[in-house]
Design a protein around this nucleic acid. Structure first.
Ligand SMILES: [Zn+2]
Ligand SMILES: [Zn+2]
Length: 761
DNA sequence: AGCACGCCGACT
DNA sequence: GTCGGCGTGCTC
């Protein structure tokens, strides 16, 4: 314990200089937005830089914290000494400290929590650097010399095998010792023995994390279309300006956005700066990731569930400037690149950019923030801009660039909406496949073309109910109907994954009138198999694609024509590019439309547009059939007409009077607890306080609720929520700050604050 | 978040 | 009379 009084404020250094006592500002990974000051002992003084992790006594134990700053003025009289420094270099640079501070303020979490969320776990754990052993043949040998060696090893079969394997490799190529041993059955001691005999060379070094393509010229740029060229010219102009700003690149599917991204990256790299490329999710089948890797040399593809050591090495490579382009999903926005000049968000509207646990940030907003801090350009690319981005562009805050033409002679597919109510009347009863869809499927299949069917619901039937008393079978832990899975013969909760045996009679009234109602992908598969015997159906949903690599394998098989019909959920909605697919059927466009969410219409429009983009990718053209019980809903009709502008105008018209984003801002507080009563109570206490603040604000702030969340119970926890709505975010922020201390968990009820929420369930 | 301190019910 | 429940407050 050092006392910050006059006598100890000065310390003597070995050189005799007298230095003022220095204090470290430290934050911890706890839900507490508070700085703690620690005195820096003389021996640590030279080593400590903000951004490093430190060991500090906290309460009666020693924990790890982050140093976020240094000061000579402590906030308290008594300060404890720092006990150690964990890093030789700061894990977070100045920009990252600024960003995390902003995160903690904006999303209502501790600064320490924000930093914690931004540093990959492997880096925090300080994974030992992965050392690989590489084997090479050494000097070139003639065929005769090789033969002599093999002869001399006649009695050491395994050794001969190793040497033979090496000889069969191309001259001077290296192979990982592990791979070599796996292929030949050799052991490490064997390799060491061969090394001693000078028959091979072993080199121990850190595995390369970067996509280093030694030699082999990168793939050349493609020629740009007239429209692309105009867009590129504009981007280049913006790039040359001192503050480059934000570009909304609105390009329909197939208009060549990726090529523009790539050439812009190339332009930026010429300036010696680095680029960050964000994608909604990293999938091995992604075309754009493949194209980036073949176009540039030092590309790092960040994979969130990557091998620890590899990830650590990759992170270091990025930090130390050996990487030019970082590609990754949401959390890659925090990649420790120095001097980022360009941040690209592909499919900007995707909700995967929003993190659904604390800090609940949106990578799109962080990208814009980071770009202003680092003076970088942001390109938001999409075929269906989020209304937030569209509106910013309309206001002139973003530069909008439109690519309205498909590359080459490709035509947009023709979209036909089928009124399912009409269908019910015509066919007397409900059929999941309409006559129109069946007709076009027959046509396409008879021409040996392929069909994609989309349904955003897995399982066999989503409801199990009693025809006599109306009882609906629900999960005993959640307020959610159970889904019947036929193949596994279980009923499953899609929220908590609880499973049960399908009932044969009503659990409530014992009647034998159990009805399995509705349809999921599993049932559609059965229906289609009956209707189209002799065709191979590939079903892709999280049930059928559970094992590793099955996703890639399945798509490859479909691409090679092994299957004629591909049926699946969300997972087949994006990115697929199969020229032989001439028909896409949307089994139900209503699944999202009926959700209690003000973005339901926007989501429906995006989904139909995205799914429609899976066809018309070849010379044979394409057609889309959209089945709906709301065939005249504007989200569906505008999507069918490929009219984004029309949709956006209509949707904005609906949101404006209600002050929904983009006109207003929102935050949501979710309360959850084991006791229904306590949960409700807590929600109304907080709501009461907020409503008082709202009253003072002259109705600038609105409080909606408290009310039970649309899903009232998940995993035995009851859920209530309330919404804050205001014209500007500051009001919401101030209000949240006022109630912040009452949001701590009490009586087993916790409160979760979600600023700019996406999920409303 | 942990952890200590503190104040009221049901146990030896 | 004590053991332990978890409500409140603090951590440089
Ligand atoms: Zn459940
Ligand atoms: Zn019943």
């Amino acid at each position: 314990m050092s006392i910050a009084d006059k006598s100890s404020k000065l310390q003597d250094t070995p050189t005799g200089q007298t230095l003022q006592q220095l204090f470290a500002e430290v934050v911890f990974n706890i839900p507490l937005n508070k700085l703690f000051h620690y005195s820096v002992p003389p021996d640590l003084r030279e080593l400590l830089t903000p951004g490093m992790r430190v060991k500090a006594p906290f309460g009666n134990k020693v924990i790890t914290g982050f140093c976020v700053g240094l000061t000579t003025i402590p906030s308290v009289y008594k300060t404890k000494d720092l006990m150690g420094i964990l890093d030789a270099f700061p894990l977070a640079d100045e920009t990252m400290l600024r960003i995390t501070k902003w995160l903690s303020s904006y999303y209502c979490c501790g600064w320490g929590e924000a930093i914690h969320a931004v540093i990959p776990p492997v880096v925090r754990r300080g994974a030992k650097e992965k050392i690989d052993i590489f084997v090479t043949c050494g000097k070139p040998l003639t065929a005769f010399e090789k033969e002599t060696i093999l002869q001399s090893k006649k009695r050491a079969i395994k050794q001969a095998k190793v040497m033979e394997f090496l000889f069969n490799q191309a001259q001077n190529t290296e192979i990982r010792a592990k791979e070599l041993m796996k292929a030949t059955g050799g052991t490490m001691s064997m390799l060491r023995q061969l090394e001693r005999e000078n028959l091979l060379q072993l080199e121990e070094r850190q595995a390369d994390a970067v996509n280093a393509q030694k030699g082999g010229a990168p793939v050349q740029h493609l020629a740009l279309s007239e429209e692309q060229q105009a867009a590129f010219t504009l981007i280049k102009e913006k790039l040359a300006e001192p503050s480059q700003g934000i570009i909304l690149l609105h390009g329909i599917t197939g208009s060549g956005k990726t090529e523009l991204y790539l050439q812009t990256i190339a332009k930026l790299l010429e300036q010696g700066r680095k680029a960050l490329f964000l994608v909604p999710e990293i999938s091995l089948t992604s075309q754009s990731i493949q194209r980036i890797k073949e176009r540039f040399n030092n590309v790092a593809v960040l994979h969130s569930h990557l091998q620890g050591a590899f990830h650590h090495a990759q992170w270091k490579d990025i930090k130390e400037g050996r990487v030019d382009v970082v590609v990754g999903a949401r959390s890659s926005i925090f990649a420790p690149l120095k001097d980022v000049g360009l941040i690209i968000l592909d499919e900007e509207h995707e909700n995967t950019y929003k993190q659904e646990n604390s800090p609940r940030y949106n990578a799109r907003d962080i990208a814009i923030l980071r770009a202003t801090y680092e003076n970088a350009m942001v390109i938001l690319g999409t075929a269906t801009p989020s209304l937030e981005s569209y509106y910013e562009a309309e206001k002139g805050n973003y530069t909008k660039i439109v690519l309205s033409k498909r590359i080459g002679t490709l035509q947009l597919p023709q979209v036909e909406i089928v009124d399912m109510l009409e269908e019910v009347r015509k066919k007397r009863g409900y059929h999941v496949v309409s006559q129109r869809l069946e007709y076009y499927m027959k046509q396409a299949l008879s021409r040996r073309e392929q069909v994609i069917l989309f349904l955003n619901r897995r399982g066999f039937t989503p409801y199990i109910h009693c025809k006599r008393c109306g009882f609906v079978l629900k999960c005993h832990r959640c307020d959610i109907p159970l889904t019947f899975h036929k193949k596994l013969n279980i009923v499953l909760c899609h929220y908590c994954h609880a499973e049960a045996i399908p009932p044969e009679s009503c659990p409530d009234c014992m009647a034998n009138y159990i009805n399995y109602r509705g349809f999921g992908t599993e049932k559609i598969e059965e229906v289609i198999a009956k209707k189209f015997p002799g065709y191979n159906i590939l079903r892709m949903d999280s049930d059928s694609m559970r094992s590793h690599g099955s996703h890639e394998k399945a798509l490859k098989a479909f691409g090679e024509g092994e299957f004629q019909i591909l049926l699946g959920t969300q997972m087949i909605a994006k990115g697929l590019d199969f020229p032989n697919v001439t028909l896409v059927g949307v089994i139900s466009a209503d699944t999202m439309l009926n959700l209690p969410d003000f973005r339901a219409g926007e989501r429906t429009f995006q989904l139909i547009s995205q799914v429609a983009g899976r066809t018309g990718r070849g010379q044979k053209g394409g057609r889309v059939i959209v089945q709906s019980f709301n065939p005249r809903h504007y989200s569906i009709t505008y999507a069918a007409a490929h009219d984004y502008e029309g949709f956006a105008k209509k949707e904005l018209e609906y949101r404006r009077p209600l002050n929904y984003p983009p006109f207003g801002r929102m935050a949501r507080i979710i309360f959850r607890g084991a006791s229904e009563k306590n949960t409700e109570e807590k929600a109304s206490v907080i709501a009461g306080k907020l409503k008082e603040i709202a009253k003072e604000s002259n109705n600038q702030l609105q409080i909606l609720g408290p009310s039970p969340a649309p899903v009232m119970k998940i995993n035995n926890l009851f859920r209530w929520h309330l919404l804050l709505k205001a014209k500007d975010h500051q009001r919401i922020h101030d209000a949240l700050l006022c109630v912040a201390d009452t949001l701590k968990p009490t009586k087993g009820v916790q409160s979760l604050v979600d600023v700019d929420p996406y999920m409303m369930l």
